[in-house]
Amino acid sequence: MRRALLGLFAFAGCASAQTIEPPPQGHPLGWLTGCWVSENGKAKEVWSTPEAGHLFGYALTLDEGGVSFFEQMHVQPGPLYVLNVYPAGVGASKFVESLQDDQSVTFLNGAHDYPQLIHYERASDMLLAHIALEDGSKRRDFAYNACMD
């Protein structure tokens, strides 16, 4: 199912032998659901099971002193999904779905300073992401594996 439409935020890489549960069925972005952590354990994203078409998430960056950065995320349903990002609880910065298929989604906000593009992709048991300017410059890539219990 591919939709090109109008209009991501994540963190760093990981490798783990843990298998994860298959994504919930019924929501086009259900594959985001779960707890995701970078290889070095310093970045984490958690996405809830979809509720009434909405997805809720949060991201943390950890350092030796604890949490150095956090943000909340909310994906609103609609003809186009809208990703609302609240860095440090402030916001929302709204990013509108521009492209979606069965295992990836891209959100855009050309008026935002950085990032302007947020992309998530499910690759087997990993969650990959990147952020960039709308033209693809200043790209930063991130990779997560499922959190260990």
Rank of each mutant, 00 (worst) to 15 (best):
A15I: 02
S16K: 01
A17D: 14
A17I: 07
Q18D: 13
I20Y: 06
I20G: 13
E21G: 08
P22L: 10
P23V: 05
P23Q: 06
Q25A: 14
Q25M: 10
G26S: 11
P28C: 07
G30C: 13
W31T: 06
L32G: 04
L32C: 09
G34Y: 08
C35E: 11
C35Q: 07
W36C: 03
S38V: 07
S38M: 10
E39W: 01
E39L: 04
G41M: 03
G41Q: 07
A43E: 13
V46H: 08
V46M: 07
W47C: 05
W47E: 03
S48L: 05
T49K: 15
T49W: 12
P50T: 08
P50E: 09
E51K: 12
A52N: 13
Y58A: 09
Y58K: 09
Y58H: 10
Y58V: 05
A59M: 00
A59Q: 00
A59G: 12
A59E: 06
T61S: 10
L62H: 00
D63M: 00
D63N: 14
E64Q: 15
G66H: 06
S68D: 11
E71G: 09
Q72G: 05
Q72M: 01
Q72H: 02
M73L: 12
H74L: 10
H74T: 06
V75A: 11
Q76S: 15
Q76D: 11
G78R: 07
L80G: 04
L80H: 13
V85R: 04
Y86C: 01
P87L: 03
P87G: 04
G89C: 09
V90F: 08
G91F: 00
G91E: 00
G91L: 04
A92D: 00
K94S: 13
K94L: 08
F95D: 01
E97Y: 10
E97M: 15
E97P: 09
E97W: 08
E97T: 11
S98I: 03
S98Y: 00
L99I: 13
L99D: 13
Q100P: 05
Q100V: 15
Q100F: 08
D101N: 15
D102L: 10
Q103F: 07
Q103H: 13
N109W: 02
G110S: 14
A111S: 13
H112Q: 11
D113K: 10
Y114T: 08
Y114W: 13
Y114M: 10
Q116P: 05
L117H: 02
L117T: 05
I118K: 03
I118V: 03
I118E: 02
H119F: 14
H119Q: 15
Y120N: 04
Y120L: 10
Y120I: 09
E121M: 12
E121N: 10
R122S: 09
A123M: 12
S124Y: 06
D125G: 10
L127K: 04
L127C: 00
L128R: 11
L128D: 08
L128P: 03
A132L: 01
L133T: 05
E134G: 04
E134R: 04
G136V: 05
G136P: 05
G136C: 12
R139H: 04
R140M: 07
D141E: 15
D141W: 07
D141P: 06
F142M: 12
A143S: 13
A143T: 08
Y144L: 12
Y144F: 14
N145V: 07
A146D: 11
A146N: 14
